[in-house]
Amino acid sequence: MTKNEVKEKPAVSHTPSSDFAKEVEQEYGGEGIMKCIQCGMCTASCMVASMTDRYRPRQLIQKILLGKREEVLTSDLPWLCMTCRLCEERCQEDVNLSEIFHAVREIAAREGHIPKVFQSTVDQVLEDGWLLKDAYSDFIEEDREDLGLDTDLNWNDEFVKKVKKRYLSGGNKK
């Protein structure tokens, strides 16, 4: 094989830093991240990891521990956790991955990185007060009547608007 045939792989360089992990540690739910020993129990338990190659919870924690802030916050990986908590149940170091990913999501959201489906669902909830207003068709209303249930679902849509205004309308949220 001559020198010309060897393919040049782009050099990947990253300077490890615990700044991002420390940042996550300060968030609500992110406190346990430093306890991770990267044993892989979480990924072995994760149903999402078993059905798709792109998501590995252990690897995501590793990226946070190594300080790959930009990569983690702009990717959709933290949003792929189903919050089923099987990993949390089994983690022998008591690392609460699901909560850590929630903390990461909150940081990502503050910087404007929110997957479309999350944004649209949140917009809907904070507008209607509940999720399925558009899906509440006449047929379903009839079904409810037949079953002897209230047809007026009586959801409050005022409170959520206050919540939106205070916490989720851009700028510095907390």
């Binding site: 929630h102 949140v122 919540v163 939106k164 916490y167």
Partner: peptide, 15 residues
Amino acid sequence: NCCGAQYVESLSHTA
């Protein structure tokens, strides 16, 4: 109102 599970939960813990 909606309990905020999953979606609002991911964007702001306080909300």
